[in-house]
Structure formats: structure tokens, C-alpha cells
């Protein structure tokens, strides 16, 4: 059997073989990601349930474990409604534009020392570029729907996303200054030496701001103004149903996982264990990522929604000045080679 497969494998041109191997690797990343998204929704309902003294979904399958599968099937079987006045082409393009960057950004994430799909030197620049693309999906969805709620929601969401992108970008500059490289693998290597060498200590304000801005970027509570159910129903995706809605949903949760993974790679040493050189592996990467995902859910259970002017004030008048000031301090620290991080 194996020989047979190898024979067929030999028939392909080497170029085709390379591409097939890459496709296989991508599937290995995307399938678990989809599964993680599905079970993140389950975890969200369960964890928030327990935080509110409820038990959460427990009817489908043992203890509710098949709930995400049931949700997926339901979304697949629902009608995709095209509003009569919508711009059909843009209407269908918007969810695609949302989901694609949320998936493709995973190409440069270093899962461990050797597990990275594409070890490019401009990794962080690629991440910055792709995460910026998400706003197009939101804006186009709001515009194409030709509905007042969708339009208002898209305006709010777009302004909020680009505002927090500034703070995020400046936090990235801080990481670059500290590590001296755009390559995500090198950024993790620059933090080697155990817990106290991780960047979250010298870059603490940037670490904090990056994660909070990440919560705002993904339009999650308490910054879910754009889809505030109580006033504009669902915001930019109010006209979407069935699988078209599911794509936005997938994108939102894939982005949550992405932000968590990036935070752990850039500030918590990625795959490195807290004790120097002791069991560095993908296990730590997943542990740190899960920690931030838990925070996402915890925020949602704890904080009431921000008002829109408060969101904008936090982004422009609090986060932006702090990041600029901290970049200056960081520059001085690097200039004077402050030990142990910049020695």
C-alpha cells in the first residue's frame, strides 16, 4: 500500500510535489484551527455559563460536547438571504475578505522551534498587513447590505478598528526595537532565558495595550459597540444569514485565536518554557494562547459595554500617548543597554 502511494507520488513533477506538501501542511494548520474555533464557541458558552452560575449548553451529545457540530450543521442548512437592494457582488465578497486574512495570517506563526509554515524575514510586517485587511470586510459588508443598521455598525466598527490599529502598530514597533528582527521565530529566540527574559516585563505597557487593542480589533466585549445588540441589532452583518454569516463568525473567532497566539509569541516567549531550556515545546505555545483566550471570555463575562466616545477616548487619548512615551523610554533603555534584556 505504502509502496503504491510512493509510486504514484513519484509520477508528479518535483514542483507539484512541493506544492502538494505545502497544501498538506496548510490543511494541518487550518483543520485544527477550524476545530479550535468550533470548540472556542462551546468553551465560551460553558465558561461564561459557569461564571454566571449556569451550566451552559448540555443537551447535544454527552455534556453538550456535540453542540458546535450541531451549530455548524444548522448554519449550513439555513438559507443565505440576499437583500433585494444589496450590491450582490460586494455582499458575497465581504465575508470572503473577512475570513481569508484571518486564516492566511497563520502562515507565519511559529508553533515551535521547527514548526512554522513559512519562515519569512518580514513576518511581523506580513501580520501587520493582513490584520489591517480585516477592516475592508467590515466596511464592504456594511455598505453592500444597503441597510441602516449595517451601515451604522460598519462605520462604528471601521473607525474603532483603525483607531486601535494605531496603538497595536506602535506596540509592534516596541517589540521590533527590543528584538531587532521582523522574523517571528527570531523574536521568540530573542526572549530565550526563562520567564524573566520574556518581553512582557520590559515592554509591560505595550504588552497590556497590545492585548486590549486586540480585544477592540476583534470587536469583542467590552468593545462590541459595533454590534451592540440592544441598539443596532448586529451591526455590519445584520443582513447576513446562513453560511455567509458563519464566515464572519469564523473570522471573528479565528482572529481571537490569532491575537492570543501573537501576544504569546511576541510578549510571552512563544514556545519557550518559563524555566530556561527546560522542555521548550509547542505545549507552552498552546498553554499561553489558551490563557489569553480565557481572558477574552472572562472580559465578556465581566465588563459592561463601553460607550462609543469612551472607546475612542481610550484608543486615542490613553493608549496612543502611553505607547509613544514608552517607545521613547524603550529607546533609552536599549541605547544604554539596560540588563538583562538589552545587554
Amino acid at each position: 500500500m505504502i509502496e503504491f502511494i510512493m509510486t504514484i507520488w513519484g509520477w508528479f513533477y518535483p514542483e507539484i510535489q512541493t506544492i502538494l506538501i505545502i497544501v498538506f501542511k496548510i490543511i494541518i494548520i487550518v483543520l485544527p484551527l477550524m476545530l479550535a474555533v468550533a470548540y472556542l464557541t462551546f468553551a465560551e458558552r460553558k465558561i461564561i455559563g459557569f461564571m454566571q452560575m449556569r451550566i451552559g449548553p448540555n443537551r447535544v451529545g454527552p455534556r453538550g460536547w456535540l453542540q458546535p457540530i450541531a451549530d455548524t450543521v444548522k448554519l449550513m442548512l439555513k438559507e443565505i438571504i440576499f437583500p433585494a437592494q444589496s450590491n450582490k457582488f460586494l455582499f458575497i465578497l465581504a465575508p470572503v475578505l473577512s475570513l481569508t486574512p484571518a486564516l492566511a495570517a497563520w502562515a507565519v506563526i511559529p508553533f515551535s522551534d521547527t514548526m512554522i509554515l513559512s519562515d519569512i524575514d518580514a513576518g511581523l510586517l506580513y501580520i501587520l498587513a493582513l490584520t489591517s485587511l480585516g477592516v475592508y470586510g467590515v466596511l464592504i459588508a456594511g455598505w453592500a447590505s444597503n441597510s441602516k443598521y449595517a451601515y451604522l455598525g460598519a462605520m462604528r466598527a471601521a473607525a474603532q478598528i483603525i483607531s486601535y490599529e494605531i496603538a497595536m502598530g506602535f506596540a509592534l514597533v516596541g517589540v521590533l526595537m527590543a528584538s531587532g528582527s521582523l522574523n517571528l521565530g527570531d523574536i521568540v529566540d530573542a526572549q530565550s532565558g526563562g520567564l524573566f527574559h520574556w518581553f512582557f516585563i520590559p515592554l509591560f505597557p505595550l504588552f497590556f495595550i497590545y492585548f486590549i487593542a486586540g480585544v477592540a480589533e476583534t470587536n469583542r466585549a467590552p468593545f462590541d459597540m459595533a454590534e451592540g445588540e440592544s441598539e443596532i441589532v448586529a451591526g455590519f452583518h445584520v443582513e447576513y444569514s446562513g453560511m455567509a454569516f458563519a464566515l464572519f463568525f469564523l473570522a471573528e473567532y479565528a482572529n481571537m485565536i490569532l491575537i492570543s497566539a501573537l501576544t504569546s509569541v511576541m510578549f510571552l516567549g512563544g514556545w519557550q518554557s518559563p524555566i530556561a531550556g527546560f522542555g521548550d515545546s509547542i505545549f507552552w505555545f498552546f498553554t499561553k494562547t489558551s490563557l489569553f483566550l480565557l481572558l477574552f471570555l472572562w472580559f465578556r463575562a465581566t465588563f459592561p459595554r463601553y460607550r462609543y466616545d469612551q472607546i475612542m477616548r481610550l484608543g486615542w487619548k490613553v493608549f496612543l500617548p502611553i505607547t509613544i512615551a514608552w517607545l521613547f523610554i524603550l529607546g533609552l533603555a536599549i541605547y544604554f543597554k539596560l540588563p538583562p534584556w538589552f545587554a
Binding site: T18, I19, I26, W106, A107, S118, D119, I120
Partner: peptide
Amino acid sequence: EYLPILIF
């Protein structure tokens, strides 16, 4: 190294 990104 950028080929996987294009494919992705």
C-alpha cells in the same frame, strides 16, 4: 519562502 503564503 513566500510560496506557502501565496498558496495559503
